[in-house]
Simulated assay, not measured.
Amino acid sequence: MAEQQCACPKCDCSVDDQSIEKDGQKFCSEACAIAHTDGSTGCGHNCSCGKPA
């Protein structure tokens, strides 16, 4: 199976079978899965994918 990337648009993290799945997409963290609506600026993996553009 090829390595997949988190479905969060700005996230570069990889996902696997253990990752969070929501609406048929895989996410590396709960923050990414809820589109950072909790105000988070990252996913906890040294990634700033939740910062506004």
Rank of each mutant, 00 (worst) to 15 (best):
C43L: 01
E30C: 09
G39L: 13
Q4Y: 12
Q5H: 15
A53P: 11
Q25A: 05
P9C: 06
T37W: 02
I34K: 00
K26S: 04
A31C: 11
G44W: 09
Q4A: 13
C32G: 09
S40P: 06
K51W: 06
Q18N: 13
C47A: 02
I34A: 02
A31W: 07
D23Y: 07
Q4F: 11
M1I: 13
M1G: 15
C32I: 08
A33P: 01
C47P: 02
F27N: 01
S14Y: 06
C6Q: 00
H45I: 11
S40A: 14
D16I: 06
E3R: 12
C11G: 00
H36F: 15
S19R: 11
C6I: 09
G24H: 07
T41D: 04
T37C: 03
S29F: 05
S14A: 11
C43T: 02
H36K: 10
K51Y: 10
S29E: 09
P52G: 08
G50E: 01
D12Q: 10
G50A: 08
F27S: 02
K26P: 02
T41L: 10
G39K: 13
C11I: 03
G50Y: 05
A35H: 03
C43M: 01
D17V: 08
H36D: 01
C13T: 05
I20T: 15
G24N: 05
K10R: 12
C8D: 00
D16T: 09
M1P: 14
K10I: 05
G24D: 07
G50D: 01
E21Y: 11
C43N: 00
S14Q: 07
T37F: 05
P52T: 13
D12L: 07
G42M: 01
S19G: 15
E3Q: 14
P52R: 12
K26T: 08
G44N: 04
E21H: 10
A7S: 10
A2V: 14
E21N: 08
G24C: 08
H45M: 06
Q4E: 15
C47W: 00
S40G: 12
C8G: 02
C43W: 03
P52D: 12
M1V: 14
Q4H: 13
G44V: 05
G44L: 05
G39E: 15
C47L: 02
D12S: 11
A53W: 06
N46S: 13
K22A: 06
C28M: 10
K22C: 01
G42D: 03
D38G: 14
T37G: 04
E21R: 12
C8M: 10
